[in-house]
Design a protein around this nucleic acid. Structure first.
Lengths: 126, 126
DNA sequence: CAGAATCCTTAAAGATACTG
DNA sequence: CAGTATCTTTAAGGATTCTG
């Protein structure tokens, strides 16, 4: 290790930072958790949307496509009219759900303590 | 529970979502973790900056101020020349570090599996 | 129902320069 | 060393409309 280099530096490509990126996109964690928790890893588009109050159709589809591209989710099209599509977690997706569940469970367990947390002045995200 | 209402909906103000907001701001988790892990909950500005490769001075100060406003961090000014300032975790900050450590430790333990994770096409975050 | 295609707004993040 | 003060960029997130 170089002198001056922190022993525990957050290297730009370190594992924790890669996981943080999953949390960084607004709906990602919620979609993965919903897929995992409510539907045995399988849910149709409409069900997902109803499970996530406030999400727009655009953000839902867009996030799902990104998750698909990252290999976390698989998309299944059923050849019917009207169209039916569902999404399942891939093995990698099931893995990535683990830290999400850790956070989710922790938040549930500490819900009351979290009331002390004042929202940031600006209040929202991008 | 109403018909059609998802049993496990992500209410807009639910505890998990409030925690997710902490993760949403890019440097928040890394600062809190660094404060917790490397310095016994106490570090000076310069040390923090050197611990976070890629952070700009602006983002460091700005994020620290937001953490202070949220009651997660306390700022201590030492009356000297040149100036010396350090930051410590508040009890609430120490609490919020918990889920961060969960994620961090999980990421470390699964670092190799995370190599399969392809970065999103757009690649970055907010 | 699922989704594609646009357009738009804003805030997050960064770059740079200056100060006590 | 710690911290302002600007300015700029970019993309995240949303709203709306249209289609098979």
């Amino acid at each position: 290790m170089q002198p001056g280099t922190p022993e525990e530096a957050w290297r730009e490509d370190c594992a924790p930072r890669r996981v943080l990126e999953v949390f960084a996109t607004k709906w990602t964690s919620m979609i993965l958790h919903t897929l995992h928790a409510r539907h045995g890893g399988n849910a149709r588009t409409g069900v997902l949307q109803r499970s996530l109050p406030g999400i727009s159709k655009k953000m839902l589809i867009q996030t799902l496509r990104e998750l698909e591209a990252s290999g976390l989710v698989q998309r299944h099209v059923h050849d019917r009219v009207p169209p039916a599509v569902d999404y399942t977690l891939t093995p990698l997706g099931a893995l990535m759900v683990q830290p999400i569940e850790l956070v989710y469970d922790w938040a549930r367990a500490n819900a009351n303590a979290l009331d002390q947390l004042e929202p940031r002045p600006t209040s929202r995200r991008r």
